[in-house]
Structure formats: structure tokens, C-alpha cells
Nucleic acid binder design. Structure first.
Length: 469
RNA sequence: GCGACUGUAGCUCAGCUGGUAGAGCCCUCGGUUGUGAUCCGAGUUGUCGCGGGUUCGAGUCCCGUCAGUCGCCCCA
């Protein structure tokens, strides 16, 4: 007879966050604010399915492949293999490309859209890194060519959206991939095979390795970075000793944060060790300068050019962005990143569709600030008023009071049982409901309302009371 | 995927060199009649992550496993 109820103890699944009501309330408010800023620039909303065909999602590059969640039925029918495999989307940029290609005929270009949905990545979770999270994307896609102004516009919009959240100072860091690509292309480094007698161009593989490492410049520093390059590349390599001395001048530039108004080309030309005549390099500098100067209206700290920003995703071809929270130094990751991609939809449609966009890593942003204690939790209930239930006999009257208040635009909860008044009040207190309404407990008595913050209680009528009374 | 650390009540944790589990918070009730956040009193709560081993005996030691945290890779 003493058999115990079997309980399955719930455990949170790491990397799949969920919040208590008081934080969810803040999260909703933030999403509304971001949406408001996006729409104020005329960007429209779309939503794409949580899943895409694996073929579509995996189009990005090998590194992300291993992080893709695929979807299958528990009882997968072996004969069903002919069906396309499905996968949860990894980001919203690739689904956008597919969407644009698919609805090409019905869209108006330049197509400006925002999209706020969850995405999934199978990574090891840690501070600021989840396996399920919201991204707030804003992108512009056009046919044939896309004016460079948009590279500045999407950045400015995102900055404004972040500013609207009142989260302290944020800094956009912008670069242009063409600069680093052009620089690496221009190099003639000593050939190992000839013991440095002749020179050789960097292979794509080597370039990729260097790019990956330069991304870490701020984190690990120039010295460590150079010795790392030496270690990884000399071994692999076609490169002769001291090849790092060819990279170093660039790192010196990449270490500085360039403000709007500064002349980037001059910085290169003043550095005699860098050959700034490379065409791609020049183009990148010009573009970066343009975008940077277009953002000069933003506050002092808000935007810098930072040549160490290159971004991991392969599809970016020009402008790239990252964003730091300057007032949360314990977190160094980017909370808002993106870039320009010249032809992401090219594999779905026979049109040239360049785009540029940025994505706010919403859940990361929210959770990092929450953990840093910078988010004031909201109310546990959206209600403005709790109507006390005096007795079962007076339920109809109390319900009518609540209805009247609701009709006047207030959010009103009616207490569920005629319990002791003290209990009803403490319920309101716990849920953070700011006002408690007392309908008459006896015929002929007046309504009263209590302000929970001040403890003050006054007579009132449901038809004309307002929260400021 | 690799490395380090952790895993005891709903939550935060204590439990010394092995002897059959404890504190605070939370929650419930009470301190008479219609008033919360303080105070006082009483009460409920545990496969000690899971499986195996050593032992007369394991929350405590050993092995395995799973999960979590942090770091690396990568990224929002």
C-alpha cells in the first residue's frame, strides 16, 4: 500500500534556454522594440519554416555541417529514403536566399525584410552560446547590384535597435573582406622548396588558415597569433622561414580601431611594408571607407573599422560586421554580426542576387546581460489590478467589476477563491500586481482600491478610476 | 568532437580520514472577526545522477556511464 509515485525528475536540456515569467516579460518587450525599429525603416516581416531540406542548409560550408540538427521520425521507414532529409535551420540567411529565389516573381526589389525566429546549432553550450536561440535578422537583397548605402543602413538600423534596449554602450566593428583577401593575394613569400631563393603566392588553404587566426587577434594578441601561424603553417607548408614578417605589418594595422573620418588608404600608404596597389585591396578600402563615413552620425564610440574582423562563414564577400558590448567586459563575443554576400541565391535561381544583412544574436544578448545582472526582471503577471473575491455570493459582482475595468483598457485578474483577504493581497504582492481592488463586501459600501507600493487605500469607482489616482 | 572540473530536498549548499542524511530559502498552516512585503510557532519534502565493484557497512573509496559547468574548435 505504501507504493510511491514514480517521478521522472525533469532536467533542463543544456543549451535550450527557458525563462521564468518575469524574464519572459522583458524578452517580449525587447522583441517588440526591435521589431518597432526594423519596421520604422520600412522592412517587412517574413517567417520561414523551422526546417529546410538538408541540401539547402548544408550549402554553407563544411564547418557548419557538423552542427546541423537533422529531423527524422522515431519510426523511420527504411523505404522512405527517397524523401529529402530535413534539418532545422542553422541561421536565417540561407532560408532567406531560398525564399527569395522561390518567390522571386512576387517580391519587390530591393527586397527589405526582417525575420525574428529561433535557429538551432548543435554545439557545446557555454556562456552566451546556446543550441536553440532567437536571431533578429535584417537583410536587403537586390537584383544584379546592391548599392553600398545599404551596408551602412542595416548597420545603423541594428545599432538603433540595440540602443532602444538600453543595454549600455555597444560598438559596431566593421571591416571588408576584400582588404585582407587583397593583401594576402598581393604577398610573395619565400618558397620553402627553393630555400627562399624564389617566392611563391599563398595557397587558398593557407589564406583560410591565416584568416581564421586573424579573427582571433584581439583575443590572443599579435605575438601568440604569429607563433601560432608559424606552428601551423611551417609544418604544412610551402612557406619559408620568417614568412610571418610578411603578415605582421597587416596585424599592426588590424590592431588599431579606425574611427569615421580617418583615412584608411592613408594608413596603408604610410605603412611602407604593405603594397597597397592591389586592386582588390583598394576596392575593399574604398568600400569600407564609404560605409564607415556613412555611419559618422552615430555616437562617438558606436562604430569603428577593425581590420581583424573577418567572420567565419564562407559566404561573405565584402563588408563584415561584429558588435561588442562595451559595458560587459566579461563577455567578449559578438552579439550582432553579419555582412555582404554577393550571390547566395545563385544556386537556387538563375539570377544574380547580392545581399547584405545583420543578425542580432538575441538570446545571447539577453542571457549575457541577464547573467551579468543588468536586466531588471519584470512583473510575474501582466495584470495591473487584482480584483478581490469577497465571497462566493459576490462573485458575479466582482466579475462585473473586473469586466468594467477591462473594458476601460486595464489588465485585470479576478482572484479565484473567496479566501482570506490577507491571502489574496499577498498573492498580488508575489505576482507584482500593483493594485488590489476591493468590491463592496456588503451592500451599500463603496469600492476601494489599494496601491501596493504605498499601501494607500482609497475609495474608487470602476467607471472612472485610473492607475494614477 | 577534445580537455578540466562538478552531480546530496523545488532552489542554494553542508556532510571531516567510510558507520544507514542536515541547514537556509521556498511552500503549507497557525498567531480569531475584511488587508501583503517584518516577526514568532508548527509542518511537508530526498531512487545522495545511474550501473557495477571493494567492505560487516559507501553520500563518502574504485571503475564505468550519463548529465551539467568551464575551456578549445566554431559561432549569434
Amino acid at each position: 500500500m505504501s507504493e510511491k509515485k514514480k517521478i521522472y525528475k525533469p532536467k533542463p536540456v543544456s543549451g535550450f534556454p527557458e525563462w521564468l515569467p518575469e524574464y519572459r516579460a522583458v524578452e517580449q518587450r525587447w522583441l517588440d522594440k526591435i521589431r518597432g525599429v526594423f519596421e520604422s525603416y520600412g522592412y517587412c516581416s517574413i517567417e520561414t519554416p523551422a526546417i529546410e531540406e538538408l541540401e539547402v542548409i548544408a550549402a554553407k560550408g563544411e564547418d557548419v555541417d557538423k552542427e546541423i540538427y537533422v529531423l527524422e521520425r522515431l519510426q523511420a521507414d527504411p523505404d522512405e529514403k527517397k524523401d529529402a532529409r530535413l534539418a532545422l535551420h542553422f541561421d536565417q540567411t540561407v532560408p532567406l536566399a531560398r525564399y527569395v529565389a522561390q518567390h522571386f516573381a512576387d517580391l519587390t526589389f530591393p527586397f527589405k525584410r526582417y525575420q525574428m525566429q529561433k535557429v538551432w546549432r548543435g554545439e557545446r553550450p557555454q556562456m552566451g552560446r546556446m543550441r536553440e536561440f532567437y536571431q533578429c535578422d535584417i537583410d536587403v537583397i537586390n537584383v544584379d547590384s546592391l548599392p553600398l548605402h545599404f551596408d551602412a543602413e542595416v548597420a545603423a538600423i541594428c545599432y538603433e535597435a540595440l540602443e532602444a534596449l538600453d543595454i549600455g554602450r555597444v560598438q559596431l566593428r566593421i571591416s571588408n573582406r576584400k582588404i585582407l583577401m587583397g593583401f594576402l593575394e598581393s604577398l610573395n613569400v619565400p618558397d620553402k622548396k627553393t630555400n627562399g631563393e624564389t617566392t611563391v603566392k599563398l595557397s587558398d588553404e593557407t589564406k583560410a588558415e591565416i584568416i581564421r587566426d586573424i579573427d582571433k587577434l584581439e583575443k590572443i594578441g599579435k605575438k601568440v597569433l604569429l607563433s601560432r601561424l608559424e606552428q601551423t603553417l611551417l609544418v604544412v607548408g610551402e612557406l619559408g622561414v620568417n614568412f610571418q614578417t610578411f603578415i605582421e605589418p597587416f596585424l599592426n594595422l588590424a590592431e588599431t580601431k579606425i574611427k569615421p573620418g580617418e583615412n584608411i588608404l592613408e594608413l596603408f600608404q604610410n605603412n611602407s611594408e604593405i603594397d597597397s596597389s592591389n586592386e582588390m585591396l583598394r576596392e575593399g578600402i574604398e568600400e569600407l571607407q564609404f560605409v564607415l563615413d556613412q555611419l559618422a552620425h552615430l555616437p562617438e564610440h558606436a562604430v569603428v573599422a577593425d581590420l581583424s574582423i573577418v567572420r567565419g562563414l564562407d559566404y561573405y564577400t565584402g563588408t563584415v560586421y561584429e558588435t561588442q558590448l562595451l559595458d560587459v567586459p566579461e563577455f567578449v563575443g559578438s552579439v550582432c554580426s553579419g555582412g555582404r554576400y554577393d550571390d547566395l541565391a545563385g544556386s537556387y535561381i538563375n539570377k544574380h542576387l547580392p545581399g547584405v544583412g545583420i543578425s542580432i544574436g538575441f538570446t545571447r544578448l539577453f542571457d549575457v546581460l541577464r547573467q551579468a545582472g543588468k536586466i531588471q526582471p519584470g512583473q510575474k503577471s501582466p495584470a495591473d489590478v487584482l480584483v478581490v473575491l469577497p465571497s462566493e455570493e459576490r462573485r458575479a459582482e466582482a466579475a462585473q467589476t473586473a469586466r468594467t475595468l477591462r473594458e476601460r483598457g486595464l489588465k485585470v485578474e479576478l482572484y479565484h477563491a473567496p479566501q482570506k483577504v490577507g491571502k489574496q493581497i499577498s498573492y498580488a504582492e508575489k505576482k507584482g500586481i500593483p493594485y488590489v481592488w476591493f468590491p463592496p463586501f456588503e451592500d451599500g459600501n463603496a469600492h476601494e482600491v489599494k496601491n501596493m507600493a504605498t499601501g494607500e487605500q482609497t475609495e474608487a469607482t470602476p467607471n472612472d478610476w485610473t492607475m494614477n489616482d
